[in-house]
Amino acid sequence: MNVPAAWYLVVGALLFGVGAYGLLTRRSALIMFMCIELMLNAVNLTFVTFSRTLSDVAGQASVFFVMVVAAAEVTVGLGIVVAVFRRRASTSIDEMSELHG
């Protein structure tokens, strides 16, 4: 398993880029949450790769906490999506424009 760490880091960067592009272009709130999950997973992959490279378990502990925060974020975020959907019958973020100037 001696693949160089740079390969995994490049995959992590590409995954982060794909997630960021989806977050910037898609308009469904559900898909945007999935793209946030993609970006979080890219960061997790980078953490684990550096953890292996530096032989330090602190990176894996960080991934553990990122997973907990991601679970909490998805729970609250999907609750917000459901609450908004009940009022607007849509998950498109373009329709949530009451606060624009």
């Binding site: 398993m1 693949v3 995994y8 995959v11 997790n44 992959l45 684990v48 292996r52 991934v63």
Partner: peptide
């Protein structure tokens, strides 16, 4: 799979279970 390949076995299991 990438986690398992980089000796993060517990995180790989948590990844499958939680995510």
């Amino acid at each position: 799979v990438a986690f398992v390949a980089q000796s993060a076995d517990f995180l790989a299991a948590v990844q499958i279970i939680v995510y």
